[in-house]
């Protein structure tokens, strides 16, 4: 028996919007720790790791570890039917091949349940090693989204370079090239508008902008984004989900021949 009641149901809607274009089918794993997902895109260039901790749910019952295979597009379709203020409950019986999403309006005058078929998905879990990153950039998520969108109108790849001057996002394409430099800026009144750069070593890596743009679909989940870079490692683009956990995107770099 599994029953997870999430008062902020729209968090789940936002999570699905953030991952459904990157990953088609995925196993959601439910344990005493929380509701999680790890999945790669079909070309194995990007990996998404989601954790919604059990403490973040109003009610969390998970009698045994369960892995539920879902088509994310279908799940997104169902969650779109929930109102933004609705409480969402995820329910599944042991051994069932369906999952039920129950939507309750805040004043309890409307209750809907949507039952979705589960699927068998062969997926392997990857071990993500703890790494010391050369540079960690924290910036407003909307600013990062803007930069990725702007640069992708010029080129296909972005070079992210961190030096003591700041973080530079560069691209080049047929029509020309573009560079955006963001400097550390902690003097603004609101911490969510600041940019902080923690650099242990300068680092410069190249990534496909198409994926970066896809990650920025998680922007509604968090006002800030953390970008962790190390040479010879996938970049981590992390959006914290307030009180609940995180969604992390890992993107393998493009490497010189």
């Amino acid at each position: 028996m599994l029953e997870l009641r999430l008062v902020q149901g729209n968090l789940l809607k936002k999570v699905l919007e953030a991952v459904k274009d990157l990953v088609t089918d995925a196993n959601f794993d439910c344990s005493s720790t929380g509701f999680s997902l790890q999945a790669m895109d079909s070309s194995h260039v990007a990996l998404v790791a989601l954790l919604l901790r059990s403490e973040g749910f109003e009610h969390y019952r998970c009698d045994r570890n369960v892995s539920m295979g879902m088509n994310l597009n279908n799940m997104a379709k169902m969650l779109k039917c929930a109102g933004n203020d609705d409480i969402v409950t995820i329910k599944a019986d042991d051994g069932s091949d369906t999952v039920t999403f129950m939507f309750e309006s805040p004043n309890q005058d409307k209750i809907a349940d949507f039952e979705m078929k589960l699927m068998d998905i062969d997926s392997e879990h990857l071990g993500i090693p703890e790494a010391e990153y050369h540079a960690i950039v924290r910036m407003p998520s909307s600013e990062f989204a803007r930069i990725c969108k702007d640069l992708s109108s010029i080129g296909d790849t972005v070079v992210i370079s961190v030096t003591k001057e700041g973080v530079k996002f560069s691209t080049r394409g047929d029509i020309g090239n573009a560079n955006v430099v963001c400097r550390q800026n902690t003097t603004v009144d609101k911490p969510e508008e600041s940019t902080t750069i923690e650099m242990h070593e300068p680092v410069s890596l190249t990534f496909a902008l198409r994926y970066m743009n896809s990650f920025t679909k998680a922007t509604p989940l968090s006002s800030t984004v953390t970008i962790s870079l190390s040479s010879e490692l996938p970049v981590v683009v992390e959006y914290k989900i307030a009180e609940m956990g995180y969604i992390r995107f890992y993107l393998a770099p493009k490497i010189e021949d």
């Binding site: 194995h44 990007a46 990857l126 490692l233 393998a252 493009k254 010189e256 021949d257």
Partner: peptide, 14 residues
Amino acid sequence: GCNQSTITEFFGKI
């Protein structure tokens, strides 16, 4: 030129 690497080149299966 640049070659796209994959996640599985960095992270091993559990």
